[in-house]
Nucleic acid binder design. Structure first.
Length: 332
DNA sequence: GGCCCTCTTTAGGGCCTT
């Protein structure tokens, strides 16, 4: 199967977020809602630092360009090809010839310096890539259900800062009412299966990693759901999540905020979106819509909890190896 | 399923994810 990927040059501007009480902060964006047609977005992303970090002058305007398959599941041809799409094509071809995805793993030794910089309290924002991600699945069981959509957004911005694709789960989708992703949408020949997507995914994240830096993959309830789910999908295809990927779960941060007595009702993403006055960004429970929301929720959480990038790295990240896989006790 | 909380730890219930 050919996993046809295409570039969608999106134009999406978010509304201005209230409470810019600090300067030089991460997502100090200026967004004006302006949706230009279906699947057409653009937004501006300014400084790639987190609360408390001096990220320098990042007034440069980023134009986010997306890397995606057609998430409506229609069989359309890509309208533009460049080096990255060629790389993806190459990776896909390698997959078909039996690629071992461990070849794509980044050496853990490359990230040694970042721990030193944390210790030395140096600016590490230029070494850390923060990627928000979300998956849609056929259900809650990582053993019996499958991923049907995945979306990612590198907060550094720039070309190809987002990635999204449907995934053919090779099984019936029973929860279409949740996310509106149907069997017909994922059966399109342009929609990759997980077997084909894994090396593409690893290649994409590797392409976003800065030399000698670290990648933090952020998801809401990621430690209990998204990361174990991905880990199981990788295991099912005899792969492992790269050991140098770090993960961050925003639920514990939300719990901390809730306990502080600010009036947050619960820790759901939708509740956090309302709490921070973030407008809906497309259909709820579509991966990229939730990623866009979580990107702004993370901004609010780090601001309210006064979390710096070093403190996030040291106290709130985990590795996939921290998650116990009980798959040996289960049968698909 | 992992995490947190409590009327707990030799347990049970609720939250959060699709």
């Amino acid at each position: 199967m050919r996993a046809a990927m295409c570039f969608s040059f999106s134009h999406f501007q978010l509304p201005r977020i209230q409470n810019h009480t600090f300067s030089g902060s991460l997502w100090k964006r200026v967004h004006n809602s302006s949706i230009k047609g279906e699947n057409s977005y653009r937004f501006q992303l300014l400084s790639p630092s987190i609360y408390g970090l001096q990220g320098g002058q990042h007034s440069r305007r980023w134009s986010r360009k997306s890397l995606s398959t057609n998430t409506e599941g229609k069989n359309t041809l890509s309208r533009k090809t460049n080096n990255i799409s060629q790389k993806i094509s190459d990776v896909t071809n390698l997959t078909h010839s039996g690629l071992n995805t461990s070849r794509l793993e980044i050496s853990g030794s490359e990230s040694v310096h970042i721990e030193q910089k944390i210790t030395e309290n140096k600016d590490i924002s230029k070494l850390v890539t923060v990627i928000i991600f979300d998956i849609e699945t056929t259900g809650f069981s990582r053993y019996n259900d499958r991923v049907i959509e995945i979306a990612m957004q590198d907060l550094s911005g720039g070309e190809n800062s987002t990635f999204e694709t449907l995934v053919n789960p090779l099984k019936r989708i029973w929860n279409t009412s949740i996310h509106n992703i149907s069997d017909d949408m994922v059966k399109s020949p342009t929609v990759p299966r997980m077997k084909e997507l894994i090396p593409i995914l690893v290649q994409y994240i590797q392409s976003r990693q800065k030399p000698g830096g670290r990648v933090i993959l952020v998801a809401h309830n990621g430690k209990s759901f998204d990361v174990p789910f991905l880990k199981e999908e990788f295991r099912r295809h005899s792969c492992e999540l790269p050991s140098n990927w770090l993960f961050l779960d925003t639920v514990p941060l939300a719990r901390k905020l809730l306990k502080s007595g600010v009036g947050l009702e619960n820790m759901r993403l939708a509740t956090l979106r309302e709490y921070y006055g973030i407008p809906e960004m497309g259909a709820e429970h579509r991966a990229m819509a939730d990623v866009n929301v979580l990107a702004l929720v993370l901004q609010g959480l780090t601001r309210d909890l006064k979390l710096t990038l070093p403190s996030l790295l040291e106290n709130h990240t985990f590795k996939s190896s921290d998650i116990v896989n009980n798959s040996k006790k289960k049968k698909d």
